[in-house]
């Protein structure tokens, strides 16, 4: 195993990772801290939500807002957590090979007695483990926090929701890998990857209102990750399969592209 490369990836980025982890813990903690006051005034809040335009309720999927799981779903899992994990994933994927090539450090890395395939696959593993680590940190925060503020939701479902978002992050990470391997420019790979992530998010959010958007929902990764409401229903095998399967296909394409690539000066 290329443990040297694996540990180097993490070591190089430990500051960024620590701040993402801290950020996830903080937003989860703040929402958990706010929730008891929402619950206490649940009647008023429910009335307020009902007074919102129907469109807004649908876009933010605000049914069941005052129940603990419903609240966490709206405040964490429909927006903040997926986008954070997508951002982390895309930036890791985009940096993996394109950054080395763009800066010029690839010249020595890729002339070591290690194949390009092993190099990029090791970096994919590093990225997957980063997302898994962030998912575990988030899930642990939520499991402890929900116990403290008496929200009735199983640890398994909290993990399921976090893990779905991590898989979503991995899918967009694989796009970062692919674009990076195709163009060798980390800026382009990050930009396009994030743009695709936001586009998918917008399509998914507006789908209840716009029929043409709704038509693509079945193939929208956000639907795979969040459509089954994992915080209430747990992990659905099909959504894990779609997310993981698509990621693996894109990652395999990235490996092929990287293996054929001319490493520019």
């Amino acid at each position: 195993m290329l443990t040297a490369l694996l540990t180097k990836s993490w070591r190089d980025h430990w500051k960024g990772l620590a701040s993402w982890a801290g950020g996830l813990i903080a937003i989860a903690a703040i929402q958990l801290w706010v929730y008891p006051s929402i619950r206490e005034s649940s009647e008023g809040v429910s009335q307020m939500i009902e007074s919102f335009p129907q469109a807004m309720q649908e876009v933010f999927r605000m049914t069941d807002y005052t129940s603990g799981p419903g609240f966490l779903n709206v405040e964490l899992f429909s927006f903040m957590v997926p986008l954070i994990l997508i951002a982390v994933g895309v930036s890791w994927g985009a940096a993996a090979t394109a950054e080395e090539e763009h800066r010029g450090t690839a010249d020595i890395l890729l002339t070591l007695p290690v194949s390009r395939v092993r190099i990029i696959v090791t970096k994919m593993i590093a990225t997957a483990l980063v997302l898994l680590g962030l998912c575990i940190i988030l899930a642990a925060t939520l499991i402890i926090g929900t116990r403290l503020v008496n929200i009735d939701v199983s640890a398994a479902n909290l993990f399921a929701a976090s893990f779905s978002c991590a898989l979503l992050g991995m899918l967009f990470a694989s796009l970062g890998f692919l674009i990076g391997a195709l163009v060798g420019r980390p800026g382009i790979a990050t930009g396009v990857g994030i743009a695709l992530g936001i586009a998918a998010f917008v399509l998914y959010s507006l789908a209840p209102l716009v029929d043409t958007f709704d038509a693509v929902t079945p193939v929208n990764p956000f639907q795979w990750a969040l459509g089954g409401d994992p915080i209430s229903n747990g992990l659905a095998l099909s959504s894990v399969g779609w997310l993981a399967g698509t990621s693996v296909v894109i990652l395999a394409a990235s490996v092929l592209a990287f293996n054929r690539r001319d490493i520019s000066t």
Binding site: G104, I108, P113, S115
Partner: peptide, 15 residues
């Protein structure tokens, strides 16, 4: 890739 155990390379633009 193991062939490169026996090659030493110094790139022109070293980074």
């Amino acid at each position: 890739a193991s062939l490169r155990h026996r090659i030493g390379y110094l790139p022109g633009a070293l980074v």
